[in-house]
């Protein structure tokens, strides 16, 4: 477990996730602009935005508590950690046994709780509103995500993402109907957790309809940059979780540098397709009323549960 190459792989992947995440964001925005017949911004725009934000002076409300200033770092740290757990390029990462899928979901939950707490710290009405809505979405999205992952865990007999990917990628060809349910549920959770249409609109400027944006209204400059960057990493991590569960082809094993080019090529291709798909979904659907969101997510939750059931029931 203390082999240098696998640790080098781990560090390489962690840095890659952090650096590449804004690029994915830029790609999704570009695709969406094309689909909506707008002239697309540069794919590098998220980087420029982050650089601009880091250079500015942070403005903080007078009575903000230390929790408020600490939260952006915790959010960014949690997302980075998640990016280190998920097998993005390779399985058998040295850090993977330290946290399994349940811990992964809990890392996202930790970030959510801190984000919601920070939103309530200043004591403005919109902050509280955003926190309340975020927790409303979270309380269903989180178990739905967990159940989706459990379906994969039952198939592979393990809660280690590494083992799950190994089993799913390298087994003989067996169709798993339960994964179809899980995939639908996962897609719904991905949309909700990353504040995407139809649950939330990442580009909105209307406070009353905001969810995620309402929570971070008080943040500026480097704090905001860290939160935005964290959100980009979160999207990246979610997409790679999706690949790990439903399209694990081409992934390398940690320490196997020869497999790396193929793994990177496969990852880029998968991300390009998934990003375009996300832009397409966001283009063709409209944002739900807030109280349709629980219905949407409870459907996802029940679908994931159903996936688990079908796994047991179709096993002859």
């Amino acid at each position: 477990m203390t082999q240098a190459p696998t640790i080098a792989f781990q560090i390489f992947q962690s840095i890659l996730v952090v650096l590449a995440a804004p690029l994915l964001m830029g790609w999704v925005n570009q695709c969406r602009a094309w689909l909506q017949n707008r002239s697309a911004p540069s794919i590098l725009l998220p980087y420029y935005t982050l650089a601009k934000l880091f250079h500015k002076d942070a403005v903080i409300a007078e009575h903000a508590s230390p929790l408020f200033r600490l939260t952006p770092y915790i959010l960014f740290g949690c997302m980075w950690l998640a990016g280190g757990i998920v097998p993005v390029l390779a399985t058998a990462l040295p850090f993977a046994p330290a946290a399994d899928i349940i811990a992964l979901v809990a890392v996202f939950a930790l970030a959510r709780v801190f984000a919601a707490l920070a939103a309530m710290d200043i004591g403005t009405s919109f902050g509280g509103l955003g926190a309340r809505r975020e927790m409303l979405i979270g309380f269903l999205a989180e178990p739905a995500m967990l159940m989706t992952l459990f379906t994969a865990a039952f198939i592979s007999g393990s809660t280690q993402l590494t083992t799950i990917v190994d089993v799913l990628a390298h087994r003989q060809f067996v169709i798993q109907p339960s994964l179809a349910f899980a995939a639908v549920a996962f897609l719904m959770v991905l949309l909700a957790e990353n504040a995407r249409i139809p649950i939330d609109n990442p580009t909105t400027h209307l406070e009353l309809t905001m969810v995620h944006e309402a929570m971070i209204l008080e943040y500026s400059a480097r704090h905001l940059a860290l939160i935005e960057w964290g959100a980009a990493i979160k999207l990246f991590a979610y997409m790679t979780i999706g690949f790990a569960l439903f399209a694990p082809w081409g992934i390398a094993t940690a320490g196997d540098w020869a497999g790396l080019p193929l793994a990177i090529a496969a990852l880029v291709a998968k991300l390009a397709v998934a990003g375009a798909g996300l832009a397409l979904i966001e283009t063709v659907s409209a944002k739900f009323r807030l109280f349709r969101a629980p219905e949407f997510l409870s459907t996802a939750f029940l679908l994931a549960v159903l996936g688990m059931l079908t796994h047991f029931l179709l096993r002859t």
């Binding site: 942070a58 403005v59 903080i60 409300a61 007078e62 200033r69 200043i122 403005t124």
Partner: peptide
């Protein structure tokens, strides 16, 4: 860091 009033929308 600059301190100021919370943003009041």
């Amino acid at each position: 860091v600059r301190r100021s009033d919370p943003w009041d929308c």
